[in-house]
Write a protein that binds this DNA or RNA. Structure first.
Lengths: 350, 350
DNA sequence: TAGAAAAATGCAATCGATTGTATTAAGCGT
DNA sequence: ACGCTTAATACAATCGATTGCATTTTTCTA
């Protein structure tokens, strides 16, 4: 290796050594201006093919990635969608809850498909500002809120001025914010009717009607019972939503109730699973002694023994709706709330 | 209402009308410079108590929130941690998988606690650059990767230069990246030993040993069988990880196998649940005819019928480790990989 | 080959905050 | 009331990219 080769080599090493972090570094290396680099990297036709190629080569030789923050600040977009879970109505409810988690996964899948990232934040609404704070932080291009909890007012207030916001949950007449959810009343009706058709005369509803959606499901149940002339035969147990908390509720109930219900309408699949387990512990056969039906259509319902009958909300489609509508709202379009058809899925527990 | 009051009122309205979006708007309103506003909002002692109060009042009167992007660009921090799920080794695996989802929820809970947001991204590693791209995008302060998939090399390569990176998964001698996970060999050993003690002589292992962690679990099983002089009595079914795909694998296996195993060691709780269901469909009692044990310690294991025995990884503690170690690495400390003790949880299926 | 049109590139403002330094105002002693 | 120290605030550079407009270079026509 002669001297000049050595020098050339050192030069090359020196080049490789330069830590290329910014567009400016690339610009210096290529002997052009930062503007040119920016355009070249964006594949702009304004830049000649030759320099474009050269700059791009340089860029991936050094593994250069433009700083997303700076870019976002300039173009006023973030490429991220915020997903908020207001944990208002039930203490101790974690993000780890199967329903949230399922919805979250589906949203993540869909958003990723559409080229967005997902910024997750659990919020415990202490005052009304939790939403506003997020909205105004400029960190996301849009917001999906999972569940209305007891925050309908806050949601309506913010929705009035901040357009890229969609909510998973129930729909009520006159609601300002754009929501996606299933027809809970109808779902409850279907569930109860199914059990009645299976020969159940006494039903129990497991779930706390204080939450909007659950209340609506209960209404549906009531209607079905009324139509069958069984209005008096429906009892309600305001069981917790969280699996660990639901189980004792249910076990207590089953242990102390006078006339055992012939059918159980659970307000969620998680509650239904707790019910299945409690029934098994009491030595009651499902569906022999008691018929059970859940609500949500979660995948785990396939894995229970017996496999869980349920009213399915088609969360996959729901997630698609949420994302697609949000993107349309971001684009400036207007959108209507979506109320999806619930679907009865009869498996083995009813 | 006299004229002057009216005017004052209009003035006030005019003020309120001005859309206060930036620190500059506030500055003008308060008649000070932007620097002063920035410091006042940060509660700096450099600013007199009086103006500080005035500015803060102004700020929340107009519901002003500083732009996070700009702030982050300036201070070179993002306040977000990226969570990546490389979906390499198994096609069709969604984020919606119960294990990911559980881990994700726990991480979200912990990160939120620590004041970080969670930026979720599903990646399908086509080439080796998926990680680098994320690392260099400057969008996050640190990275948690859930599962090594078949990307150990990539992880090692990036870990060598990018410090704030931790990985959930198995630990292998000489590994460069910092990992948190349970002692899979020991876990597999415990599971098999437990079933052997329950009187099982023929065991089946359900799970695909191509994945690092699962391979290690199988090794543990083998060792336990060897110690009991039953080396020949272990069969392996490389079942899929995904519940929907695992069930047919298992049903086929149970339908065609010659001598039925007396015990099943499943490589995950999800696989175990599929096994429970398949066994029930074949009319086999658990644990009467077949003993079953899972792996992971997921919450849903509590809700199966019969409740699932499992080797628990304490994901909660794992998530805490991941987050805490990551924060320490961000702070510049060095950290060692953590190998947690797996714990046998005997419930009703074994 | 001059001159005009077209193509390629450079320049500098901008996004919205933070922060070191310069500058002004206030406070104090004599 | 004057200089001097200290407290309070203003100024301006900065983070890293984008982009309209000005400028230079190239290409083509007459």
């Amino acid at each position: 290796m002669d001297l000049s080769a050595n020098e050339a080599n050192q030069q090359e090493n020196a080049n490789a050594m330069v830590k290329v972090r910014t567009i400016k570094d690339i610009a210096e290396l290529a002997g052009v201006s930062t503007g040119t680099v920016s355009r070249a990297l964006a594949g702009s036709e304004l830049i000649s093919k030759k320099t474009r190629a050269k700059i791009q080569a340089l860029a991936d030789e050094h593994g250069f990635r433009p700083n997303v923050l700076a870019r976002n600040l300039r173009i006023q977009k973030t490429g991220a969608i915020g997903v908020l879970i207001p944990l208002g109505h039930e203490k101790g409810q974690h993000i780890s809850d199967p329903f949230f988690i399922t919805m979250l996964g589906l949203l993540a899948d869909r958003l990723t498909e559409k080229g967005y990232d997902l910024l997750l934040s659990r919020v415990i609404p202490t005052d009304g500002s939790w939403l506003e704070r997020f909205v105004d932080s400029g960190r996301v291009d849009g917001l999906i809120v999972i569940g209305q909890s007891d925050q309908v007012e806050t949601l309506d207030k913010v929705a009035a001025r901040y357009r890229p916001l969609v909510v998973w949950g129930g729909y009520t007449e006159g609601q300002v914010h754009c929501s996606v959810g299933s027809d809970n009343r109808k779902g409850g009706y279907i569930a109860a009717k199914h059990l009645i058709e299976r020969g159940c005369n006494r039903l129990a509803f497991f779930g706390d009607p204080k939450a909007l959606e659950i209340g609506q499901r209960l209404e549906g149940c009531r209607q079905a019972m009324a139509e069958a002339g069984l209005s008096e035969k429906l009892s309600v147990l305001p069981a917790h939503l969280v699996a660990e908390a639901a189980h004792p509720d249910i076990a207590n109930y089953l242990g102390s109730v006078g006339e055992r219900p012939q059918g159980i309408v659970a307000a969620s699949d998680v509650i239904a699973m707790s019910a299945l387990r409690a029934l098994a512990e009491f030595g009651l056969a499902v569906p022999g002694d008691v018929h059970v039906i859940g609500y949500d259509g979660l995948a785990i319902g396939e894995q229970t023994v017996p496999r869980l009958s349920t009213v399915s909300q088609d969360l996959t489609q729901g997630a698609h709706h949420l994302v697609d509508m949000l993107l349309r709202r971001i684009a400036g379009e207007d959108t209507q709330s979506v109320v999806m058809e619930p679907e009865l899925i009869v498996r083995m527990s009813s």
